[in-house]
Amino acid sequence: MERQRLNAQALAPYADHVLADAFIPELPNFYRGKVRDNYDLAHGERVLIATDRVSAFDRNLAAIPFKGRVLTEIARFWFEATGDLCPNHVRADPDPNVMIVERLEMAPVEIVVRDYLAGTTNTSILTMYRSGARRMYGLAFPDGMRANEKLPQTILTPTTKAGHGAHDAPLGADEILDLGLLTPRQWEDVSQKALALFARGREIAAARGLILADTKYEFGFNAEGHLILADEIHTPDSSRFWLAETYEARLAAGAAPDSLDKDFIRNWVAARCDPYRDAIPEIPQNVVLEAAATYLRIFETITGRDFVLPAPGETPLERIRANLAHLFAR
């Protein structure tokens, strides 16, 4: 199917082609995350299965067809493109939705790197700036900045790593060290690698007509204490991508940038309720399919590959079970 035909209408037959959960009883040590279902194997390995759940505002909002597959395949692309900058946790790729990874001791902070005054969540610098804050994450911001304006320099805005249902909280570098969350040497290593990864991502995105506005990284430490890039990298769930060709005109008009990420869903929800306090309204099928088309578009834009739709009747969980059957006895 041609790229331009992967729109909401073309995806209508796949409205029920979703992986809302990936519980496989034959696999050991199940743990459900916000988006991924995880299994801990012997010999220090973990199975990460990306479901189609979309999480924002510390809540699950919907299930988007093909989202988990898109996240996994985009993350694979970026892990390969950045392997010279930082080792990552990937050990095997048995299925389009699955990675087998090295089990790590995860750092207790998430690292968000930002180039623009943007965001919709309570920990985003735009939300905080609009509320009157001018000192955030240990950094000073001038008056008079516009929403989605480029920052004077790339910044790090770490947060606590909250569990499911809890809220992340902003951290400054001094707080990270004072609380003993990371040692000075670990913080220096994390900071340098996060900025290098972001610079690589920004460069590759620009070559594809995209602006990488911000992104989240998660790091862990292996048994030898080495820093390892974990979770995902530069996906539509962990990053904010804008179309470069329309950015300046939309900024001048005071309009939000054209985005290719989960802001499509976040913005729809935020326009209809306070997502931190109110019940989330049911998201209509046409909005879900538009979100699916957005995920497929960014997959094709970043990777340069066509997204091949599955044969009618394929069930994602059945395919995953077949591809992981060799692990059932382990």
Rank of each mutant, 00 (worst) to 15 (best):
R200F: 12
Q4K: 14
A63F: 02
F30Y: 15
F77L: 05
L181V: 06
I125T: 03
V70A: 11
A205D: 06
R114F: 08
N122A: 06
P13Y: 09
A205I: 11
L41F: 12
G225A: 13
Q4T: 15
N122R: 04
I204K: 01
F66I: 08
I211M: 05
R297A: 12
G83H: 14
A50H: 05
E314I: 09
V308H: 09
L151Q: 06
G132K: 09
D263R: 02
L229F: 08
L289K: 01
P158W: 12
I298S: 04
F198V: 07
A10Q: 13
G33W: 06
L6M: 15
E224Y: 15
A256K: 02
A107L: 14
H17V: 01
T51N: 12
Y247M: 02
D258H: 04
L227Q: 08
A213W: 01
I155K: 01
F307D: 00
Y276G: 04
T127G: 07
P281N: 14
A249T: 11
L71I: 06
T315E: 10
A8Y: 02
Y14G: 03
P25H: 05
A196T: 07
V101D: 00
K161H: 14
E282R: 12
P158A: 14
T123F: 09
P275M: 01
I125S: 01
A20T: 10
E232W: 10
A173L: 14
I64D: 00
L126N: 06
N286W: 12
L48Q: 05
A205N: 06
H43Q: 15
I265Q: 05
L11W: 04
A8I: 11
H43I: 11
L85K: 10
R185A: 14
D261R: 01
F307H: 04
F307E: 03
W242F: 03
A279G: 08
G209A: 04
P142N: 12
R59P: 04
A213R: 04
E2M: 14
L181G: 06
H43G: 13
I64K: 00
A271K: 14
I204V: 13
P25E: 13
H164T: 15
V101T: 05
K34M: 11
R91D: 13
S55I: 05
T301G: 08
G44S: 10
S259N: 08
A223V: 14
D37Y: 07
Q285C: 10
L171A: 02
R277A: 06
M128D: 07
D52P: 03
Q4N: 15
I100H: 00
L182N: 00
F264G: 02
P152F: 13
P275Q: 08
N286K: 11
Y14M: 10
A271I: 12
P152L: 13
V109C: 08
P87T: 02
R5Q: 14
G180T: 13
N97H: 13
I228K: 00
A147L: 12
L85G: 05
D261G: 01
S124I: 00
D214P: 01
L289S: 07
G201E: 04
F30W: 14
A92N: 11
K216Y: 07
A75M: 05
V18N: 03
P316D: 07
I211W: 01
A325D: 03
